[in-house]
Design a protein around this nucleic acid. Sequence first.
RNA 1: AGGGGUGUCGCCAAGUGGUAAGGCACAAGACUUUGACUCUUGCAUGCGUAGGUUCAAAUCCUGCCACCCCUGCCA
Length: 558
Amino acid sequence: MLKEVEPINFIEEEINKDLSSGVRTYVQTRHPPEPSGYLHIGHVRNIVLNYGTAERYGGVCNLRYDDTNPTKESQEFVDSIQNDVLWLGYKWNKIYYATDYFQQNYEVAVKLIKEGKAYVCDLSPEELSKTRGTLTEPGIESPYRNRSVEENLKLFEEMKEGKFPAGSHTLRAKIDMASPNMNMRDPVIYRIQYIHHHRIGDKWKIYPSYDFSHPLDDCLEGVTFSICGPEFEDHRPLYNWVVENSGVKNKSRQIEYNNLYLKGTILGKRNIKKLVNEGKVSGFDDPRLFTLAGLRRRGVLPESLKNFVNTVGISKVNTAVFEQAYLDYFIRETLNQKSRRVMAVLDGVKLVITNYNKLEEEVFTKDYPQIEGNTSTHKHYFAKELLVERSDFMKEPLPKFHRLFVGNEVRLSGAYIIKCTGFDEDENGNVTTIYAEYDPNTLSGTEGANRKVKGTIHWVNPAHCKKVVCRLYENLVMEEDSEAVEGNEADTDGIQLNPNSKTELSNCYAEDIDFNFEDRYQFVRNGYFALDKDSTNDCLVFNRTITLKDGFKLPKNN
RNA sequence: AGGGGUGUCGCCAAGUGGUAAGGCACAAGACUUUGACUCUUGCAUGCGUAGGUUCAAAUCCUGCCACCCCUGCCA
């Protein structure tokens, strides 16, 4: 069912033009990953564009693996891609593989040969390269360019049967060796390969090139709009040549849009693989990676990623390079809405409330204070001895610091206002115990609680909490290398990785509630956390997805 | 004069001849039992640049300049 759509980007404008002029009558797209690596954030926009555009127009999008190069591909990657697409919330109409079309590709190749539009070339890779010409000089025609149709047919058949060694022969489209567009200088459309294919085994000895199979498969599959990256702009004339000369009825149109990079992140399948293979990260789902698997494990929600790319939009500018702060905004935005609020002390120091003499007392805090009307709460136990965050106390407070220091009042979240009266320290000057007195009239929820104090801090009762592990993350790439790492093809060899990119704190204390893998938590004032798969029944492991935005900047100490 | 593509605020991005949307970032303020969130306000006399056409130009024309992609039997 075709829908009328108010265009939200230039691709949809182009689609609308074709639709209203009748050149094309429906919208069908395809998501064509090569199964040669894990999907990363740079791929999300392509996924949203292909699945999303089809959806908007009431059309379909197929997942088609571009698996025409067995040297780089594997089943592991095939599986991970499906997993990631589903996680993002998209569902393909059908799954295809470029290899599904090998027979049809082959038949079109034979047709081209019969029409004198393709020929078998015996040039070696080196010779071919030499005769291609340069950016400013035309190429030289192959000596095999004018073989007879019969000879071409026979040779191509022999290539198919495996009678020639790899690299010895290719099938080339006969176009124009003098074309200013390098892609049109009799491009190779078939090559010989004897590598075992992860899916079709050793069945085929000849493999079509991307430039030949992709447009053909698009047309055969019924795709009308083939949305791809800017690097294929120069290939469009060849794409159209294949479409026009293959005899297919449905004619797909290629539309290119710009790339997106995230500043200071290592993207690019090859570079990510290198980090994994060299053990610099724990795997493709290391939370420091910007693979979808990594982001997922870190606790990022798919909605954030989709909001991010949709808000970013698309254009044709060379490359859109984004500050990570932009992505961070969307990660926080959804987490803020969905996270349950829980208190956890990551680096604790003992707090003794000297004038508190009850054994303990129940207090309650809201689970989702950010959701209006949600009244669900959970219980804490207030007591004489608590644990507070070490960083919430200063022996000598800096200006504008309004947390704990001797003489200052703060509220213990959900409980009482206390006044700091003193502290103990060890021989190294490390604070070991903080002392305070509480104001019994200020319990949250009572009238006396209306008294305002500038600071509110979180706490945990050591007698009623879970000891947990928290993993905190920083960028893998150091600030100074952030530019060097830009782009999918960046050379990351000389990059010094951040030694502090992962910090594991194993003495953290969280409230004693039931944590689960599906939910997201805000450890109040410490950031958003998600349970990691390394958790066991005895030991919960949390990943900090992201910190809270920190509006408080300590003044320079001078 | 090899070809193709792109230049609008620090980063993205609308704009399609009628007088520069929006988001992020940033700044100031309000609110706040999270220094979060939310709210309010500010943030391009300017659209790579130089000319031209027009009552009117980011939008049309011409010339420059800058950046990106292309010389795989990768995708």
